[in-house]
Simulated assay, not measured.
Amino acid sequence: MSQRGKKATSTELIHHPYQPPAGFESPVVGVHKASTVFFPNVAALRSHHWLNKSGYTYGLHGTPTTFTLEARLATLEGAKHVMLAPSGLSALGVVNMTVLRSGDTVLLPDNVYNPSKELARHELAGWGIAHRLYDAMKPETLRAALGPDVKLVWLEAPGSVTLEFPDLPALVRTVREAAPQATIAFDSTWSAGLAFCAFDFGVDVTIHALTKYPSGGGDMLMGSIACRDDALYERLAMTHSRLGLGVGANDAEAVLRALPTLALRYAAQDASARRIAEWATTQAPTVRQVLHPALPGSPGHAHWAAISRAAAGLLTLVFDPAIAPERVDAFIDGLELFRIGWSWGGPVSLAVPYQSQRLRQLGGGYEGVIVRLCIGLESTDDLIADLQSGLERLRREV
């Protein structure tokens, strides 16, 4: 029981009068964790707004930590507005749920990130939303798929796993001419906001899997949604709010801490991947083809060269179809530095096998097994030596 005029210690610990002095700054943005946000009075509770980020209302609607990250990502993406999401896929879902309604159709490139197809096949279909596929390397197939029912068109560059690079400006022009009612969305994860700015080509909204290069550690999940148009931002933000999406403050801190080195890491992984891609072209006939946008002869190389000089840290090896899949699996299992795992953009190099024909519905897959390599931050020479040893073992097993 408290003495008269003195509060109990338990109360004092919760309602302590001390406030630290203002003006503290350091290289790292402060971590603000909140569900409840305090207001100085009822008038403030009624007047504070989160949509324009002029004030704080509730943890899901933003804190100084998340507002700061969103502002820096807007600079990275060349956007005016950014929202954070728990993953890249959830960011993609917010765009779909904002734009599409029952009876609408969404168009997806056949080489899109496969979970995007699965979302269209299942959840969107269950809500009465149709989807059609087009070949991103053939703009005429996009034009043929457009119609008054199309309200959303997804673009991706390069294509998932097989890394074809489409003519992005031509695709955007095609949509604007044939379906001006459609919103154009772009997955900017590969470009990381550094290789090129998709908004310069006229897209309406981008999503970014911050899990990849902005995080850079392979240890957290986050996504972002970016746009320039105020009205579209409000629609997206309200969908985001109604879904109750939020990110952890410590995850936001991790991305903020990694952003200053993003350009350095991206450039290093890009340079390493190019060296490895060029080396891999000398490994015929075991490696039949190397897929990497910066390589002449890789599908869409000219389109990449027209808009970009950066090329991220991904490449794909197309193996001789005479090599059985289990032998390719053994090749991957025998690598010492390349680990086996999904995702990319982290410090550790990764290798994953695919049967590309299973990924495509419109044809255009490669015969035999393909192996996508994510290049990390290890020594390029060491990575080449690891791959060289693996290929030599593979050849000896014939």
Rank of each mutant, 00 (worst) to 15 (best):
Q3C: 05
L256I: 00
T261P: 09
R275I: 02
G5E: 04
E140P: 12
Y366C: 10
E253R: 14
E77K: 13
T261W: 10
V172G: 13
H49D: 03
R358G: 12
M238W: 07
S349Q: 10
A8M: 01
S349H: 05
K7W: 14
G345N: 07
G30C: 12
T189D: 00
Q357L: 11
P321H: 13
A284L: 15
A209H: 03
L76A: 10
T206H: 14
H15G: 02
T380A: 01
I184N: 01
I332E: 01
A268K: 06
I370C: 13
C374S: 02
I370Q: 15
L243N: 11
A294I: 04
D251Q: 06
P260K: 03
P27N: 09
H48I: 07
C374G: 06
G390Q: 02
A330P: 11
G193E: 09
P260Y: 09
E156Y: 08
W127N: 10
P40S: 10
V95F: 02
L146S: 09
G62W: 08
A284V: 13
P20Y: 01
F67Q: 15
P299Q: 03
L221D: 12
L317G: 10
Y58A: 13
L142S: 04
V369I: 13
L377D: 14
F39W: 05
G88H: 02
G365H: 10
Q361L: 07
A311Y: 02
K212Y: 02
Q357S: 06
G297T: 14
G5S: 00
A254I: 14
H301C: 01
G78Q: 08
L60E: 04
A310C: 04
Q289G: 14
G23W: 04
R228C: 02
H61T: 15
T162G: 08
L245I: 03
H61M: 14
L314F: 04
I340M: 02
G202H: 05
D386I: 11
V371A: 03
S224Q: 00
P353M: 00
M97Y: 03
I384R: 14
A74N: 08
G62Y: 07
L317E: 15
L291K: 03
A34T: 15
F39G: 06
A195E: 00
Q361P: 10
S349V: 07
T281L: 04
A252V: 03
G23N: 01
Q355K: 12
H81M: 05
L315V: 05
S298A: 05
R360T: 00
A136I: 08
A273Y: 03
G62A: 09
M83H: 12
N96H: 05
F24V: 06
L232T: 07
A185D: 11
Y354A: 11
G364K: 11
G193D: 07
G246I: 11
K53R: 02
L108T: 09
H292N: 08
A302L: 10
G390M: 05
